[in-house]
């Protein structure tokens, strides 16, 4: 990576870190919401569905602004989290994680929800009659069967997080080394005449990482699928 300048390398590493954390942190919540949407029968399910998909529909700048006034230091949630847990999002890399996670959430939930809907609840009933409690049914039957969907959702979310720009720059601005992710850096380079070379290098890195992730997920999902179906 010697052909990347220090600022560019910082941006790439930060983007990797942000995307990884955004993916890992939203996995449990995403799985839970996917289950609610796939299996839940409660009033307001459609509302929850709409809410989850909102970042997909809203302009990213609007999502970023909503995050800013909610999770900023003066936002109701931002202040509560800072006072209670010392957790600060504003202008920190943690804020970039939050923005990326929110933007990637709908994609993750969609993939997981589809795989959950494909699981036959009759298999779970069968497991229960064989003595498996709800937790064990989930761990030994449901989870292995939806594993390909979880992998697909996670990788999609990771790729989306790698490319997130609008909400991130609106929420946590562009601070080299702290919140300047790869897309932010590309944008900044493109604002300066002659910045194309640096931007191009970063774009190549972004393409390689995203394609690599998608390829890895494809291979992994296929391997799991083979193991699950035994064919």
């Amino acid at each position: 990576m010697t052909w990347l300048g220090p600022e560019e390398l910082d941006a790439v590493l930060l983007s990797l870190r942000v995307s990884l954390w955004a993916t890992l942190c939203s996995l449990p919540l995403g799985l839970w919401v996917a289950f609610l949407l796939a299996r839940g029968r409660f009033p307001g399910r459609q509302l929850l569905n709409g809410l989850v998909h909102l970042p997909l529909i809203l302009p990213p700048v609007v999502t970023g602004y909503l995050l800013l006034i909610t999770f900023g230091r003066n936002g109701p949630l931002g202040r509560f989290l800072e006072d209670t847990f010392g957790l600060i999002f504003a202008f920190r890399w943690t804020g970039a994680v939050l923005a990326a996670a929110v933007m990637a959430f709908p994609l993750m939930v969609r993939a997981m929800r589809l795989s959950i809907e494909a699981v036959d609840p009759k298999l779970e009933e069968a497991a229960a009659t064989l003595g498996a409690s709800r937790v064990w049914v989930f761990l030994t039957v449901t989870l292995p069967l939806i594993a390909p969907g979880i992998v697909a959702g996670a990788i999609l979310a990771f790729a989306k997080a790698m490319g997130e720009f609008g909400a991130t720059i609106t929420f946590v601005a562009n601070i080299p080394g702290a919140t300047q992710t790869l897309p932010s850096a590309v944008y900044a380079f493109l604002q300066v005449p002659g910045g194309e070379a640096q931007a191009t290098r970063l774009v190549i890195v972004a393409i390689v990482i995203s394609l690599g992730a998608l390829l890895a997920s494809e291979l992994l999902a296929r391997r799991i699928q083979r193991r699950v179906t035994g064919s």
């Binding site: 036959d120 298999l123 009933e125």
Partner: peptide, 22 residues
């Protein structure tokens, strides 16, 4: 008594074998 504590063996119309296990 919850299903998993009933000590019941249930053979369904469709076998309902777990496809991910041998």
């Amino acid at each position: 008594v919850p299903v998993h504590r009933r000590r019941i063996g249930y053979v369904f119309q469709e076998a309902r074998l777990f496809p991910h296990l041998t």
